[in-house]
């Protein structure tokens, strides 16, 4: 090698989540102090805990090449694939005190091992496969052009590690919500030219479990070790619902559409008008908060809104640049 590569070591204190669902009433944290070399990845540390300190320490691992998705855990709250994440990078981000936890503490079975059943159930629910009429005796190849493949937008790179799913606050609070990984899978197949599912897009648009409950926090984009950007796929599923004409007339859909209505009228948003259009008669439930806000000068009536200057430009652009219908 032409450049000299020097291996360095640093002292790191690891605070490691320990729990055995069969024996422990509550989880606890064990401290391990180690000299960590610049060559190591997080999985090396898990191995050293097991091999050098406590043989009962449990975690999932398999390929060690960032492709099986088994070893996803959290370091200082950040979802990561243990086999892919360099210890040096972790120390750069968080310093020499690192907390190692499973992806979901509440789903822990033993140490880093979690019950991922909810993840797999939701994944299975979006038809994560091609729905297509297969000619059993084809006379030619079923070709997909590079442009058509590009439309998948890397969604096919997902390794189902669950990093995004357990980083998602909507998954945390809404047990029906499919979650970013399932949506990325739904997009991957819905965007495939060979796919003809008639139910998938509608399923992921249902109020109870669907894309509309995304809180837009970008935790999934940050967590994904394959940089798939799941929230980008959620956005695309929203857009597909309008393109396919299956967007339902509900509060979430009207909320997205309502921005355009407001913009074409005022340039700026009419906040009250948006809530009224989105909620319809259900707006009454917002009255208590609205009254409090009104008493503090936080509500501007429609006639008091300062419209954007050069509003005619905005109206013209909305007319010429609109690409979606509802």
């Amino acid at each position: 090698m032409s450049t000299e590569h020097k291996i360095t070591t640093q002292n790191v204190n690891f605070k490691v989540f320990r729990f055995n669902a069969d024996e422990d009433y509550l989880p606890y944290y064990e401290d391990y102090n180690m000299e960590v070399t610049s060559e190591e990845v997080v999985l090396d540390i898990l191995n050293r805990i097991k091999w050098d300190h406590d043989g009962s320490f449990s975690y999932r691992r398999s390929c060690r090449h960032g492709i099986c998705g088994a070893c996803a855990i959290k370091v200082n709250g950040r979802s990561t694939l243990a086999c892919k994440e360099s210890m040096n990078d972790m120390i750069d981000l968080f310093g020499n005190e690192l907390t190692i936890e499973p992806l979901s503490k509440k789903r822990a079975i033993k140490d880093m091992i979690i019950d991922k059943a909810d993840f797999w159930d939701k994944h299975a629910a979006v038809q994560p496969y091609l729905v297509a009429e297969i000619d059993e005796a084809p006379t030619s190849e079923n070709l997909v052009s590079p442009e058509e493949e590009n439309a998948l937008d890397d969604a096919d790179l997902c390794i189902q590690c669950g990093a995004c799913h357990y980083a998602c606050p909507a998954v945390e609070h809404n047990e029906d919500f499919f979650g970013p990984a399932a949506f990325a899978a739904a997009y991957r197949f819905s965007a495939d030219v060979r796919d003809h599912s008639e139910t998938r897009l509608a399923d992921v648009n249902e109020e109870k479990q669907g894309v509309w409950d995304c809180v837009k926090c970008f935790e999934c984009a940050e967590a994904c070790p394959k940089e798939i950007n799941p929230i980008g796929k959620i956005t695309k599923l929203h857009q597909m619902a309008f393109q396919e004409g299956i967007a339902k007339n509900n509060v979430a859909v009207r909320h997205a559409v309502g921005f355009k209505k407001s913009i074409v009228k005022n340039g700026v948003l009419d906040e009250g008008g948006l809530v009224l259009y989105s909620e319809g008669p259900a707006i009454v439930k917002h009255i208590p908060v609205a009254l409090k806000m009104f008493s503090k000068g936080k509500i501007v009536p429609p006639w008091g809104i300062t419209k954007s200057e050069n509003l005619d430009e905005i109206k013209k652009l909305v007319k010429s640049s609109s690409t979606a219908k509802f």
């Binding site: 956005t235 929203h238 997205a256 954007s308 509802f326």
Partner: peptide
């Protein structure tokens, strides 16, 4: 920037991405 419009508040692009970009 008194001429500015609403940015779409991370919702408009769910409906119409191109319009959101133009605005």
């Amino acid at each position: 920037l008194t001429e500015a419009s609403c940015c779409g508040a991370s919702h408009l692009q769910d409906y119409d991405d191109f319009l959101s970009l133009v605005l």
